[in-house]
Write a protein that binds this DNA or RNA. Structure first.
Lengths: 332, 332
DNA sequence: CTGAAAGCGCTAACAA
DNA sequence: TTGTTAGCGCTTTCAG
């Protein structure tokens, strides 16, 4: 056959109307057993596959969700993507994915594009957009789940309890009898470092421990950043007995710096990271870390979106806080 | 406004026909400067965004490419996805992504779905499908680029020169003066391990070196697999002076086994992996590895697909072999 | 239980 | 340079 066959061909072959074929497929209207069988045979014989686009034009539903992230190649987001995928694919939804490098223009462009493509929902990881951008570009017809603290928006949100994770890490060290605990945050105002810093400070305060200002420093979220900053820290006359680092890459840099300085981990220095990237379990010594559950976040985003997409439940914006958990390995 | 406005609204506002609006947007037909300006103003005032679905129904093009992989959370595929993204997004194409866990049924289901969604092209990483499946489900209207050795199909392919990479690794060790080189492949008939094994054997033969059968073993593609198999190897009376492992995870397991056995790397044992996962640069000692350029593979897939999608160049199936390269680090 | 007809929003002949 | 008309393939009133 030269062209893909349509519902019309099936109808002709089955000797019924296209309406009946449509309903035989969707089940949205009773069809007699006899015609149903005839139609099904005709479908099988013609190899008919409904054109999703035509259906979408009519129904205004595309069974498609957009996932907008800074960089799908950054190991955090693939886990999110998989979680989202697993939450929605059983309901027939597919994922349209876009990497924006965190650039505002790219984020806006991708948003506009997927809105014009009539996606049924959007999962947005953005640090550059605010609520006004969202209402302007997306409107209020397409549900959005934002997975970052997007200011001034009424859309659903999935957040991580960074402070709680940091507090757990801090208490873990205190329980080990270590009180001189330093913190390596990320660049000021960038990423989750300062929420984590706040949790660390809170846990120390709750334990009546006063941290040394000089033991609270900042590094880029990279191995190199961690290595150089912690290298300087360890070169001082005295250094803390433990370091909580704002992510695993910094923590791995800290391990390297300790090795270079001849400081034994965990005997002379304990190190904790955040994220639980694959490498965390593989470095030597294996890294104790606060798990940021990327997969679960993706799932949660999917579930919240499903709730909006399936029901007409037009309720107020919901907010979910995903819990973290501490994995203790050899570095503490 | 209550509903998203359509081309009709713009036309009414600009006092022209919808045809003219359409052409003012697409530029597929000359429009006088005056009306163009009027239309553009009307578009701006109404905030009109063309409905991509309606356009697609008419033009039979969706500007969408499907990427089908076993698991987007497996670190190899995000890099592929990003490469594909970067190759096609400037041409207006978006990526619809699906994880199949390598299961035949999931692969077929996803293929059917994206075909019914009229994607313009498909990038397929599959080890379970063959050419017949492809022609049956996809037909010959939608171009496919397969990134694995799918038997009996006429579609474009992107392959990796595994054997060449293994040969380069082998020569590197030989150049270091090491001749007792073992090989840890993956499970028989699973993944690229045996192509790599073949390259290793070829390079040894070319150098006139005869490998000891007992130094060629198999492990699962995991850290645990590598650790246990290499642990046994090192427990023997004599062991090889170098090991080439079919992937980085196995190689990292080998490093752990060596450490456990008190075998110094690289002094008493050199270790080479494949892939260059992030952890390869972070383990101690850092791992020498054969880079499998996932990003470039994705790009290449995108370019081959673009060639099929844009031109009607209906030529014979093309095949590209992506080169590998050796990164020498401390483990050799 | 079934069918006829309208129409989703756009583009592409064809006609002027 | 512009407009009229038909129709992409499906779903959904409305009518029987």
């Amino acid at each position: 056959m030269s062209r893909r066959c349509t519902i019309k061909d099936v109808a002709a072959r089955a000797g019924v109307s296209t309406t009946t074929v449509s309903h035989a497929i969707s089940g949205r209207r009773p069809v007699s057993a006899a015609t149903l069988a005839t139609v099904q045979r005709a479908i099988a014989e013609t190899g008919f596959r409904p054109a999703a686009i035509a259906r979408s034009l009519r129904t205004r539903r595309t069974e498609t969700v957009a996932l907008i992230v800074p960089d799908i190649a950054n190991p955090f987001y693939p886990a999110v993507a998989r979680g989202l995928h697993d939450a929605i694919s059983d309901h027939g939804y597919r994922t349209l994915i876009g990497s924006t490098d965190g650039e505002r223009q790219a984020e806006l462009g991708f948003l506009e594009d997927v809105v014009s493509r009539s996606v049924d929902g959007i999962v947005l990881f953005s640090f550059a957009l605010d609520g006004r951008d969202l209402t302007r570009v997306v409107g209020d017809r397409t549900p959005v789940v934002a997975a970052a603290d997007i200011a001034g928006t009424g859309c659903d949100r999935v957040l991580v309890d960074d402070a709680d994770g940091a507090a757990a890490a801090t208490r873990h060290l205190l329980d080990r009898g270590v009180t001189e605990i330093g913190f390596v945050s990320g660049p000021k105002g960038h990423g989750p470092g300062d929420h984590r810093l706040a949790g660390y400070l809170g846990a120390l305060a709750a334990a009546g421990v006063v941290p040394a200002e000089s033991n609270i420093v900042r590094a880029d979220y990279t191995v190199d950043g961690g290595r150089s900053v912690v290298g300087e820290l360890l070169a001082r006359r005295s250094h803390p007995r433990a370091l909580i680092c704002a992510n695993d890459l910094i923590a791995i840099g800290a391990l390297q710096a300790a090795r270079a300085a001849g400081v034994a981990v965990p005997d002379a220095l304990s190190v904790v990271g955040f994220d639980n990237i694959d490498a965390a379990a593989l470095v030597q010594p294996a890294l104790t870390t606060v798990v940021i559950p990327a997969y679960e976040m993706g799932q949660q985003c999917g579930q919240m979106l499903l709730a909006r997409m399936t029901s007409e439940a037009d309720g107020p914006a919901r907010q979910t806080v995903v819990p973290t958990r501490l994995i203790v390995r050899a570095s503490t």
